[in-house]
Write a protein that binds this DNA or RNA. Structure first.
Lengths: 152, 152
DNA sequence: CAAAATTAATCAGCATACTGATAATCAGTG
DNA sequence: CACTGATTATCAGTATGCTGATTAATTTTG
């Protein structure tokens, strides 16, 4: 009766809590002032170069209402610049500043370490199994959320 | 590089988004005005009877700072009562109201349906595999978060 | 038993996420 | 070219989650 160990919703919420805690456990010591979400936004910007907010949001599955605040805070810190697109005055083009690039480079190894730690407790083959199943679930459920992930 | 499909942190956050969306997809039509978190709190209260906030928080791994607001809203709706413990005046004893019991009974089948839907896309044996791995990761990482789950 | 440590709850502050609405702009059509 | 519809961004409002501080009450200890 109501056994949390068999309730996916509860376990998923719990896993997310732990993943975030593991992220901070690894990054706090390194003096990194980026949230997991902020890191993902910056890492994606580094990958794809200059894009508008909606495109960025689609690549990392952020809600359009959430992305504005995330970018606000990165602009505030001086890691990202936001300027009106010359070709579409509705859109805001984003790109990393030089400072942003440096911060990101410094954070990267620690964040990658954290990603490893998140699955601690699993054997190597189990990790692959788990990631495979995760991707399968997400592929099937992607369109359920208001902020689906969109391929470039 | 920076392939989201191999970043546990990103996938976990995404899975949580989808799980919540699936919950609402299933409960909205049934006119259920409970968040996933509120439902879990009430379901646990039904299971264990009268307990204080901290104990409840431990059972479902909520932060002590978060539980107050959750309970506030349930009290507001008339589903839960909160009274000062006669044996420890710091503590607030919680219990479901009759209305709360009815609401919970009405919500239960829909929420359980949603729990099934969350793993849609997986075969039966994969679901078990996934839940097994989930529990294993959580067991290993439980103490990482500020709000660990505590066995009764 | 009195002082110190601990505990339950709350609070202010910050950062996701979402709903639903609005403003500004652009694109397509007649 | 004017009009309709779509799109980008933002905003107000609500609900988790967390940090760190505070208050009140209880428990432990010297």
């Amino acid at each position: 009766m109501h056994d949390p160990a068999h309730m996916p919703g509860h376990l998923i919420r719990r896993l997310q809590q732990i993943a975030v805690a593991v992220y901070y456990a690894e990054t706090d010591n390194a003096g990194i002032d980026l949230t997991p979400v902020q890191y993902a936004a910056m890492a994606t910007l580094l990958d794809v170069g200059e894009i508008d907010q909606i495109t960025l949001a689609g690549l990392i599955a952020y809600d359009r209402s959430t992305i504005a605040g995330v970018i606000d805070r990165l602009v505030q810190k001086g890691y990202v610049e936001r300027q009106v697109s010359p070709t579409d005055r509705r859109a805001r083009i984003l790109h990393l500043t030089e400072t942003g690039r440096q911060i990101l480079a410094h954070a990267k190894p620690h964040v990658e370490k954290a990603q490893q730690n998140m699955l601690m407790g699993l054997e190597e083959n189990e990790k692959e199994q788990f990631l495979g199943l995760l991707n399968k679930i997400i592929a099937a459920g992607n369109d359920q959320s208001r902020a689906p992930m969109r391929k470039d």
